[in-house]
Amino acid sequence: MMLSKVAERVYWTARYLERIESTARIISIYDKLLFDLPRDVKLSWYNLITINSAQDDFNERYSVRDERNVVKFMLGDTHNSGSVISSLDAIRENIRTTRDVVLEETWELTNELSMYTRENLQQGINRSKRHEYLDNIIKGCQQILGLLYGNMPHDAAWEFLRLGRNLERADMTTRNLDAGSAAIIELAVDDSAVNVHQIIWGNVLRSLNAELSYRRSMRCAVKGNAVVQYLLEDSAFPRAIVHCYNALIDSCSRLPNSRALVTQLTKERNKLKKSPKHEKLDEPLRDYLNTLQIQLGNIHQKISEIWFPKIG
């Protein structure tokens, strides 16, 4: 027996947790990407804002689109509801109100992570200690996730955590692919483009922690087409979209009143497995990713309608 309200809060806890980890990961990768690129290649930090569709919020608060502002906005800006600190606040609030279903230690670990993130924010904004700071945030998230994996009973709360996590993951993966594609378009005219392609797609893989598994699974060098296919269609890699879909289907089918949603998800997943091949990795790919994001947004709607409290 699970309250609809609790289901919703648990689901959002997982989404925010995932969002924090991806945000920390993407900033940390971007840092390194900029070191790797040839000096004459100008890649803007502002891309990170675009990837997260946060242009309006950002521009309202900052006029200069530089590294410092972008990083500050993504890590510590309480006006940005997707920032790491805002997400942590949201998790605290959600866990506080669902302490009766999540493990006791989740609450303590969240408090620890929240305290660390706040007290050391400046380390994240300045470059010199940023790596260590982001690394600690990522570890903090993994610690919570690990705790839940090892100890939480696989009841309804678990399924909602899984739904939240996998939906957020799938969404983040489309955004990372989109970031790669956007960078390619931005740098298209450059002579050193071939080398740059490899650097960009390598970093997309790294930011999803997929580099090693990509090599083992695809057994080929880092090439745009292969990376896109891998991150869309692989069923074994946890952040690949087909894998996320499989998890969504599995969790939904364990929850009540889910038949129609399971059918829909299965159909979408089967289509994904035959994703169109985009040779050039430019606008048509971006359109396709955009369609996927809308599709994922729609799944969230369906989940809310079936299980979460009715509004009004």
């Binding site: 699970m2 309250l3 609809s4 309200k5 289901a7 009766d100 006791e104 309804a156 409290p309």
Partner: peptide, 29 residues
Amino acid sequence: AQQMGAELVEGSDLVVPEDNKVYMKTIDG
């Protein structure tokens, strides 16, 4: 609630229909 393993509810989670019984809104109904 956590220590007892009981549900923590707010007023909006509960309803009392005409049968004069109290129900909570869960994912199963």
